[in-house]
């Protein structure tokens, strides 16, 4: 059956427009949507919990001389927000940002540079300054050995055993 073309106009005018006007209007955004994460540089302690939890290794902890860098590559992130769940200090929070298109891949990197603490005995770097302070405030009983790296800590423990019992093999 052939329809009058003008009847289409009446249908179209009664139904209205379905096409979204984006980018000239706000996008449809639900509260469940997960976008890019944001790392708070005043809270992060550089422990690496997020690095272990990240499935595609978008968050990486890189060591160089005297600094530890937490590198976030947005181009590899899958927006699972597991890092937010595991962060012990709540430094990572999620945003609803998705307009991340760019013409240069280096725009998609975010770096957070941490200073490394040095061992009080052998002067070699072993952890970030902030994590050492975090451990010292959370459990004050570690005061005697928190400023040493694991190797020196081990040697100190062995020496103490030797002093007390005269050796490890009895």
């Amino acid at each position: 059956m052939k329809k009058n073309p003008l009847s289409l106009l009446t249908i179209a005018s009664s139904k209205g427009r379905v096409t979204k006007r984006y980018p000239f209007e706000e996008p449809l955004m639900t509260s469940e949507f997960r976008g890019k994460i944001e790392i708070d540089e005043s809270k992060c302690i550089g422990c690496g919990a997020c690095v272990n939890a990240c499935p595609p290794n978008a968050l990486e902890l890189l060591s160089s001389s005297g600094t530890k860098t937490l590198r976030y590559f947005i181009g590899r992130c899958i927006y699972c927000w597991r890092c937010i769940d595991v962060c012990p200090v709540g430094a990572i929070k999620g945003t609803r940002e998705f307009e991340l298109a760019t013409d240069d891949v280096s725009d998609l990197y975010e770096l957070l540079i941490h200073e490394e603490a040095k061992c009080s005995v052998c002067n070699s770097p072993y952890a970030t300054v902030r994590i050492v302070r975090y451990v010292a405030t959370r459990s004050p009983s570690t005061e005697g050995y928190v400023s040493m790296d694991p190797k020196c800590r081990q040697e100190k423990f062995v020496k103490a055993i030797e002093m007390r019992f005269g050796g490890l093999s009895a």
């Binding site: 992060c44 725009d107 975010e110 957070l112 540079i113 941490h114 200073e115 902030r130």
Partner: peptide, 9 residues
């Protein structure tokens, strides 16, 4: 909108 960010703790 995005730009490379280098923050220092």
């Amino acid at each position: 909108k995005v730009k490379m960010k280098v923050k220092k703790a």
